[in-house]
Design a protein around this nucleic acid. Structure first.
Length: 736
DNA sequence: TTAGGGTTAG
C-alpha cells in the first residue's frame, strides 16, 4: 500500500480551503478509499492514525466511513467503534445509525437504545428511516414492550410509518414481545408487503404456538405476488413440526425441491427437525445421512429425535459419534429422559456431565434436572442445584424460578418454594401459576386464591394453566363455591375457554363435596366429549360417597375410552366392597385376571444423604431390610400399646394402593420408607416420602400416629397431593 | 449516489 499523501493536511487546514457543505467532499480522498479496501483491525487503526494526523478525522463524512468499517465490517469491533465514535466532534447521522445498528445485534442491545436517546438530544439531525429499524430491533432483543410502543409512536409522528423496513421491524418487535395481535395489526395495515413482512409474521405465528395461523398465512401468501424463500419455509416447517403434521411436512419438503428454494443449512436442519418432531425418525435419518454439510445443530436435532422417541441407545451412540459436543447436545438427552418419565436416568446423565466436565450446565440443563428432581422428590440434589445457581452467579430467569418453585413444592418444602417466589421481582404467568399449584397441592386453597388476586394486582394475565391450578386448589380444600365462581369467570372475565382438564377439575370439586348430581349435570352439558379424566374424577367421588349406580355408569364410560385402565377396576371394586357387594368384587377381579390387567405396584421413595431409596410393596431387597422389618414390628407394638386397631375394611378391600390379598397392610411401601427414615435420619429431619399411588386410609391413620408417637414430621407426597403429618394430625384434614 | 428488516436444536 502506497504511503498516503500527507500534503493534503495543509490543504484541509488552509483557511481558503472550500467550506465543507457537501458531506462527500472527501469521498475520493486516497485515505478514505483505503478504508473500503481495508481487511483487518490493525490496518484500520493505521488509517485512523493517518486521519487524525491529517485532520481528516474532523470531517464528518470521513469519520462516518471509519465508523462504518469499525462497527459493521467483517473485522468489526464494537468497542473500537465506540471509541472512534466518542472522539468524533460532530458525528453525522450516518455515524449515529452505524453505531445504533452495531449495538442492536450485539450482546448489549440496550446501548443501541441509549445511543438513540443521545441522538435525539445531541444529534444535529433527526432520526431517519435507517435509524428506526435498528433501534426497534434492539428493543425486540430486549423485549421491552413499553419502550417499543413509545418508539412506534415516534415512528408515526415522524412520518416513517409507511417505510417497509420500519414496518417489518415493528412486526418482528411485537412478535418478540409475544404481542401477536399487535404484530398482525401492523402486518394488516401495510399497503405493501414483501417477503420479509410475510416471513416475520409466519415465523412469529410458528414460534408462538399458533401453527395453524402460520400455515394459513403461508397459503395466503401463495395467492399473492410474493415468492416464498428459504426463511419462509423455515417458519412453515417449524409450524408442521409443532402440529405433528407429517403429511403436510412431507408436502412442504417436496414443495421446496420443486420450487428450487435455496437449501440453506438452517433449512436443512429444520427439515430434519420436522421429521423427528413428527415421529418419522427413519425419514429423518435418511435425510441426515444425505446432508452434505452438518453443523452441531444437525447432530443435536438428530440426537433429540432419537431421545424423544425413547431410543436412548441410538441417542447415546450419536452423542459419542458427534464431531463436537456442546451443552445443547447433553440437554437434549437430559430433557428427553426427564419428559419420558425417566427422571432417575435424567439425573444420572446430569451427574455424568458434571463428572466428565465436557460441557458447562446452562439454564436449560438446570431447568430439566430440577424438573427431574421434582418428579423424584430428590430435594438434596434440587437444593444443590439452587446453591450451584447462586455460586455460579447464573441469572435467575422465569424458567429457572418456575422450576425451583416447582421442585421445592413437589419435594414437600413449601416454605422454600415461597422463599424463592418472594425473593424475585420478575414474575411471569408461569411463576405465579407454579406457586399457586404449590399452595394447592399442600392444601392451602385459600392462600392459593389470595395469591391469584395478588397476581391480578401485579397485572399478570392468567392463562389456562393458572385456572387448572386454581381449580385444583379449590378441590383439595373443599372450596366449592369459589371453584364454581372461578369456573364461571374463566370465559366471562378472562376470555379463556375451559378445556376438558378444567371440566375434570370441576367434576372433582363437586363430586368430592357430594354434589354428584350437579357433577353429572355438568358432564352432560359439556361442549366437548368427556375424556377419561372426567369419568375418573366422577368415579373417585362415587367411592367417597358410596354411590354404586353412578359409579357403574362412570366405570362403563371410562372403560370405553381406556379399556386397560386398571385403576378404574380397583376403584369400582372398592366401592362394591364398601357396600358389601362381595359377589361383585370377585366378579370384577375375575374380569381383571381374564384381561390380564394388573394393578400398578405401589412404590415409595425417600432421599437420604442425596441417595434416593425406593421401596416396593413387601420389598425385602434393601440391604437394611432386616432392620427395617424389626423397626416395623416395633412400630406395630407401639401403635398397639396406644390402642390402635388397623382398619380391617382396608384389608378386605382390593385397595387401590396395593393388593392386600397378598400383602398385609404394614407392608405398604410408604411404611417401609417411613421405617427406613426413622432408622437413618436425624430426629430433627422431616421424613419426606414420594409415593406413586394414593395413600390408603389405614396408612394415613398410621402416619398420623407415628408423627405423634415418635415426634417426627412426615411429609408424604402421593399421586394427588401432599400430606404433612405432625403431632398426630395431617394437613389434609382427612379430606383427600 | 455511504445503509436496512425476517430463520433452526435444548
Amino acid at each position: 500500500m502506497a504511503a498516503p499523501n500527507t500534503n493534503l493536511q495543509c490543504d484541509y487546514l488552509n483557511p481558503n480551503f472550500p467550506t465543507v457543505n457537501n458531506d462527500r467532499f472527501f469521498a475520493n480522498h486516497p485515505i478514505i478509499t483505503m478504508i473500503d479496501r481495508c481487511s483487518n483491525t490493525k490496518h484500520l487503526k493505521t488509517i485512523h492514525a493517518q486521519m487524525l494526523r491529517t485532520g481528516l478525522f474532523s470531517d464528518p463524512y470521513s469519520a462516518s466511513k471509519l465508523i462504518q468499517a469499525s462497527a459493521l465490517s467483517q473485522f468489526s469491533s464494537i468497542q473500537y467503534a465506540r471509541k472512534v465514535f466518542d472522539q468524533i466532534p460532530n458525528p453525522n447521522l450516518y455515524s449515529w445509525n452505524a453505531l445504533i445498528r452495531a449495538y442492536s445485534s450485539s450482546p448489549q442491545p440496550i446501548h443501541s437504545f441509549l445511543i438513540f436517546i443521545r441522538l435525539t438530544y445531541e444529534g444535529c439531525e433527526n432520526p431517519n428511516k435507517f435509524t428506526y429499524p435498528f433501534v426497534i430491533k434492539a428493543l425486540a432483543e430486549l423485549s421491552d414492550l413499553q419502550v417499543g410502543k413509545g418508539l412506534h409512536g415516534m415512528v408515526v409522528k415522524s412520518g416513517f410509518i409507511w417505510d417497509l423496513f420500519v414496518l417489518n421491524s415493528l412486526i418482528h418487535f411485537y412478535v418478540q414481545c409475544g404481542c401477536l395481535k399487535m404484530a398482525y395489526q401492523v402486518f394488516l395495515s401495510m399497503p405493501k408487503r414483501d417477503v420479509v413482512s410475510w416471513n416475520s409474521m409466519i415465523n412469529g405465528f410458528a414460534q408462538r404456538d399458533c401453527a395453524d395461523e402460520a400455515l394459513d398465512l403461508f397459503r395466503e401468501m401463495e395467492g399473492e405476488d410474493v415468492k416464498p424463500n428459504d426463511v419462509t419455509m423455515v417458519g412453515v416447517l417449524s409450524a408442521c413440526g409443532k402440529k405433528l403434521d407429517l403429511e403436510f411436512g412431507r408436502w412442504v419438503h417436496s414443495y421446496i425441491e420443486k420450487n428450487g428454494i435455496r437449501m440453506s443449512l438452517t433449512l436443512n436442519n429444520v427439515i430434519l427437525d420436522m421429521y423427528t418432531k413428527c415421529g418419522s425418525v427413519v425419514e429423518a435419518k435418511r435425510f441426515f445421512d444425505k446432508m452434505e454439510e452438518k453443523d452441531i445443530i444437525s447432530w443435536t436435532t438428530m440426537l433429540a429425535g432419537y431421545a424423544r422417541l425413547g431410543d436412548f441407545y441410538a441417542a447415546r451412540s450419536l452423542l459419542a459419534a458427534m464431531p463436537c459436543q456442546n451443552i445443547a447436545s447433553w440437554n437434549a438427552l437430559i430433557s428427553a429422559y426427564e419428559q419420558n418419565g425417566n427422571p432417575k436416568e435424567a439425573v444420572a446423565i446430569f451427574n455424568e456431565l458434571q463428572l466428565s466436565k465436557k460441557a458447562k450446565p446452562d439454564e436449560v440443563t438446570l431447568v430439566s434436572t430440577l424438573s427431574a428432581c421434582a418428579q423424584l422428590g430428590a430435594m438434596d440434589l434440587g437444593g444443590w442445584i439452587h446453591v450451584y445457581i447462586k455460586k455460579e452467579g447464573i441469572r435467575l430467569n422465569c424458567h429457572l424460578i418456575t422450576a425451583l418453585i416447582d421442585m421445592y413444592s413437589k419435594c414437600g418444602d413449601l416454605e422454600k418454594a415461597l422463599e424463592v417466589f418472594h425473593s424475585v421481582d420478575k414474575r411471569d404467568v408461569f411463576v405465579w401459576s407454579a406457586m399457586i399449584a404449590g399452595l394447592a397441592m399442600h392444601g392451602f386453597g385459600r392462600d392459593a386464591i389470595e395469591l391469584f388476586l395478588k397476581m391480578q394486582e401485579a397485572k399478570v394475565e392468567p392463562n389456562c394453566v393458572t385456572f387448572t391450578n386454581l381449580l385444583s386448589a379449590c378441590s383439595h380444600s373443599g372450596l366449592v363455591e369459589e371453584g364454581r365462581d372461578f369456573f364461571r369467570q374463566m370465559e366471562l372475565v378472562y376470555d379463556i375457554v375451559p378445556v376438558v382438564k378444567h371440566y375434570a377439575c370441576m367434576v372433582d370439586i363437586l363430586g368430592r363435596a357430594g354434589l354428584l348430581e350437579e357433577a353429572m349435570e355438568l358432564i352432560k352439558n359439556m361442549p366437548m366429549a368427556p375424556a377419561a379424566s372426567v369419568w375418573g374424577a366422577l368415579l373417585g367421588a362415587c367411592r367417597l360417597h358410596s354411590n354404586v349406580d353412578l359409579a357403574e355408569h362412570a366405570f362403563a364410560r371410562l372403560l370405553e375410552l381406556e379399556p386397560q385402565n386398571h385403576r378404574a377396576y380397583v376403584l369400582l371394586s372398592n366401592i362394591y366392597a364398601k357396600s358389601g357387594k362381595w359377589d361383585k368384587v370377585s366378579e370384577l377381579r375375575k374380569v381383571m385376571r381374564d384381561c390380564g390387567l394388573k394393578k400398578e405396584p405401589g412404590c415409595s421413595s425417600i432421599e437420604v444423604d442425596g441417595i434416593v431409596h425406593e421401596f416396593l410393596v413387601g420389598d425385602n431387597s434393601h440391604p437394611l431390610s432386616k432392620k427395617i422389618y424389626s423397626k416395623l414390628e416395633e412400630i406395630a407394638a407401639r401403635l398397639k400399646s396406644v390402642g390402635y386397631v388397623s382398619n380391617k375394611s382396608q384389608l378386605l378391600q382390593l385397595v387401590e394402593e396395593e393388593d392386600t390379598q397378598e400383602q398385609a397392610l404394614y407392608l405398604h411401601s410408604e411404611r417401609l420408607a417411613i421405617a427406613f427414615g426413622l432408622l437413618t435420619m436425624r430426629p430433627s429431619q422431616p421424613i419426606r416420602i414420594v409415593k406413586n399411588l394414593r395413600v390408603c386410609g389405614d396408612c394415613h391413620s398410621v402416619a398420623k400416629l407415628i408423627s405423634k408417637l415418635y415426634n417426627r414430621e412426615i411429609i408424604l407426597r402421593d399421586r394427588y397431593r401432599f400430606h404433612h403429618f405432625k403431632g398426630g394430625y395431617c394437613s389434609c384434614k382427612d379430606y383427600w
